[in-house]
Design a binder for these strands. Structure first.
Length: 810
DNA sequence: GAGCTGCATGGTG
DNA sequence: GCACCATGCAGCT
């Protein structure tokens, strides 16, 4: 493959030059980043690399640009003047000339995120990265780039030095220009030490690595590691160890894309031995192999147990794979996950000793090193003889090195808070993420308390967002939904605390960035990211730092405690509300799919408040709040919008799954019954085969929605004294078999139900209906609340003229 | 029965 | 609907 050059023009003035009529997004004041990518093989990977180079060459380009694809890259197509929340990975691969634009939605609206959620289900969370950045106002330059020239001509045989440099050493992200209270110099220092996930170097495969596999190594570490040596370290990818990875099986499942991109190609399932050096300089030989899996492959490293043990790794820890260039030697580093309640993170990276060998530079945090302010304290551990001058400096830097992307507050302004709730949300996210690993039911756990915390954390993050000051949004309508678009990204506002007075009133308090004194503010006020006493326009007596604090230290403590209590109460309430009012997601989907338009008949509020999204406030009229959960009451059954289609699809899948499970169970029980009846036949000499047969047949009937008709016959007599609790009860109707019931049934279940006025089919399961059905299914103990079953009966009972209604019992 | 191997299954994005 | 991947598990040693 030859290397060529792309001409790429990056403009951030909003006017895509040479791209007539393509977009009117923004104006000269716009800060929308416009990237024109000229080339015939523009794909996601190319774009990512372009963005990396942008970062490296243009100090003002927001460094998170390349992560825009995660969630919020809005692609304005050449021939459409429509903003489209696009899946860049999919769309760019087929677009030869494109304009990408970053757009931001009003932060307290959340509509963009929800729209993304609706249209692309995999994109559920807005990207904090995006929010953090602020693009520069203007910039235009031409970048050398590797790829195929648009006209097929070879523009440059030799890859540009700058590009090569980027390949050899990951590009250092430039400091954010954001609303953070960080002075540029300090910012630079802090940001150099942020653990930013970065797209790895070029691999073989076309597919781009998922961001979760991007190696997260700080610039500081990289610089230190590869700085003055002839060799350089190319971080390739990393993986958070799963339970099975770290288990005794000794197989580390490799992300397919990573394995194919960075490990040698293998064609045989047996694979080949791979030598990988660890941070201690030990060389391990793993079997790199694959298994066929669903027309694909599953790559594993076998025999990793000794290595894992050597590094004392467990589920939740992260292993990193890097390459030493030149030579292409693979090295394996690791990063310990946080444990329990603290936010420590043990950091280990491979360092190259001056003699070219690998040494260990390991950093570990301990519980005694709880973060102060916004950083970590790190303990330095080194192997004998492996320490060099860089180690010390790294140790020093690592006080902040694990700050992740979640920069939240600067120490430089002297404004510190002891309120631990001010810990960086993203940090918490990371902590939660890793904590879940290792549990067998980690996916289920995501709906437990942890995820609630996550939601709250996100909510907190939302609370910190402020719309860009004094800019008017442009309204874009997509599928009848209005989006407020801002040319400027939202900024982080200042965190304040709210407290409840015993009198019932609420107060808002903020801390001065200069003097750290707390000032009382009106509740409705939103503060800019930097706020000092002089900005305290609401209290002239305390609009200067020299003014004493309104409250004593003790009172202040109480305030903070009160704020925490408020938050805790809110958490509890949310939890309660969630558990009380929200059915499981699938239940809600199924219900919505079944109920369609007719929920209103049930007496349920057709429109009500929802806690489904974090920006909800009482009285909020956003699209989410005015639309009840799952969209009921808003869409007709025939509606084919994305949401409805999704609901229907999911419901269908759900039902299919339920039916499958049900039929399996029924087949089993039928088998069991069959055996039992055989025994009975043998002992009693009376044939109950018909009943047994009927049971099986009836099962099918039930599944095919005819089951409800079974309960009455024109001539049969039914023993109304059926006792569901008694397993020995039989249908003692001479000459009547369940089989016989089916063709003769002519009345609906509801007719039958009407004859039993007190029957509530939902709550009073021990009724004739349930008894008969129990008999019919041949299951003594099966729970009638089984969803598929329940729904089927429910549907049957409540379908009137093709419309489902709540049962109206006499 | 324990451990290993190769594949299958199911949840998730 | 599909690919990925965490994990389960049957069959084998």
């Amino acid at each position: 493959m030859h290397s060529h050059s792309y001409s790429m023009k990056i403009q951030t003035d909003g006017t895509p030059k040479g791209f007539g009529g393509s977009s009117d997004v923004g104006d000269s004041q716009s800060t929308i980043v416009q990237a024109r990518v000229v080339g015939d093989s523009v794909d996601e990977g190319r774009l990512m690399q372009l963005c990396k180079i942008m970062e490296a060459n243009e100090p003002n380009i927001l460094p998170c640009f390349h992560r825009a694809e995660i969630n919020a890259f809005s692609q304005t197509k050449q021939d459409e003047n429509v903003h489209q929340m696009g899946d860049i990975g999919r769309e760019f691969s087929s677009v030869t000339q494109s304009i990408g634009s970053l757009t931001y939605s009003k932060p307290d609206n959340n509509r963009t995120a929800l729209e993304v959620k609706d249209r692309h289900e995999s994109h559920l969370q807005p990207s904090l990265n995006m929010i953090l950045g602020t693009p520069s106002r203007t910039s235009s330059f031409v970048l050398p780039f590797s790829g195929t020239a648009v006209d097929g001509r070879e523009q440059s045989k030799t890859p540009s030095p700058s590009f090569e440099q980027h390949r050899a050493r990951p590009i250092l992200p430039k400091p954010f220009k954001s609303g953070l209270n960080v002075s540029s110099e300090t910012n630079k220092g802090v940001l150099n030490q942020m653990r930013i996930a970065r797209p790895p170097g070029e691999g073989r495969g076309k597919s781009q690595l998922l961001p979760r596999y991007w190696p997260r190594i700080t610039d500081q570490e990289l610089e230190q590691l590869s700085g003055d040596l002839n060799s350089s370290i190319v971080p390739l990818f990393e993986k958070v160890l799963s339970a099975s990875d770290a288990g005794r099986i000794g197989r580390l499942v490799l992300p397919k894309a990573c394995a194919e991109a960075y490990f040698p190609p293998i064609s045989q399932s047996e694979g080949l031995p791979l030598r990988i050096q660890d941070v201690k300089g030990n060389e391990w030989t793993f079997q790199f192999r694959f298994w066929p899996n669903n027309n694909s492959r599953m790559y594993v490293l076998e025999g990793v147990t000794p290595c894992m043990q050597s590094m004392q790794l467990q589920a939740g820890d992260t292993v990193t794979f890097s390459r030493i260039d030149p030579g292409g030697k693979l090295v394996m580093g690791y990063r310990k996950a946080s444990n329990n309640e603290d936010v420590q993170e043990v950091q280990a990276q491979t360092s190259i000793l001056p003699n070219g060998t690998l040494g260990e530079t390991s950093f570990s945090g301990g519980t005694e090193n709880l973060p102060t302010g916004n950083g970590y304290s790190g303990h330095l551990q080194t192997n004998k003889g492996s320490k060099d001058s860089r180690v010390d400096s790294m140790s020093e830097h690592l006080h902040l090195a694990d700050g992740d992307i979640g920069v939240h507050k600067s120490e430089t302004n002297g404004c510190r808070t002891n309120e631990d709730s001010l810990q960086p949300p993203v940090l918490k996210l990371e902590k939660k993420r890793t904590r879940n690993i290792g549990s067998k039911s980690k996916r289920l756990l995501m709906h437990s308390e942890d995820v609630l915390e996550l939601r709250l954390t996100w909510e907190e993050a939302q609370d910190l967002l402020r719309p860009p000051p004094s800019v008017k949004p442009s309204i874009v309508t997509i599928e009848d939904q209005d989006f407020e678009e801002y040319d400027e990204p939202p900024v982080f506002g200042k965190r304040t605390i709210f407290i409840s007075r015993p009198s019932g009133g609420q107060e808002q308090w903020a801390q001065c960035d200069d003097c750290s004194k707390w000032r009382k503010l009106p509740v409705e006020v939103l503060l800019p990211p930097k706020w000092t006493c002089s900005d305290n326009a609401w209290d002239s007596s305390r609009c200067s730092c020299s003014a004493p604090e309104e409250v004593s230290l003790k009172e202040l403590e109480n305030l903070l405690r009160s704020s925490k209590d408020l938050k805790k109460r809110r958490t509890t309430e949310n939890r309660k509300t969630a558990s009380e009012h929200e059915p499981s997601g699938l239940d809600a989907l199924a219900r919505a799919a079944v109920l369609g338009d007719n929920v209103g008949d049930t007496g349920e509020p057709s429109v009500g408040a929802t806690t489904k999204h974090p920006r909800h406030r009482p009285g909020c009229t956003c699209i989410v709040c005015i639309q009840p959960p799952s969209g009921k009451g808003k869409h007709k059954p025939t509606c084919t919008c994305n949401v409805c289609m999704t609901v229907k699809r999911r419901f269908k899948t759900l039902m299919l799954r339920k039916k499958k499970r049900q039929s399996e169970r029924e087949a089993e029980s039928a088998q069991k019954d069959d055996n039992e009846h055989k025994e009975e036949r043998e002992t009693n000499g009376t044939s109950t085969g018909a009943l047994s047969h009927a049971n099986q047949s009836e099962n099918k009937v039930i599944q095919s929605r005819v089951q409800a008709d079974v309960v009455e016959t024109s001539g049969g007599q039914i023993d109304l004294n059926c006792h569901p609790g008694r397993e020995d009860m039989q249908l003692e109707v001479p000459g009547l078999t369940m089989m016989g019931l089916v063709p003769t049934s002519s009345c609906r279940l509801e007719n039958y139900i009407k004859r039993i006025p007190s029957m509530n089919m939902y709550e009073q399961q021990p009724t004739l209906g349930s008894c008969l059905l129990k008999k019919a299914t041949g299951e003594g103990g099966r729970d009638l609340s089984d969803e598929g079953y329940h729904t089927s009966v429910w549907e049957r009972a409540n379908r009137v003229d093709g419309v489902y209604r709540e049962p109206k019992l006499d």
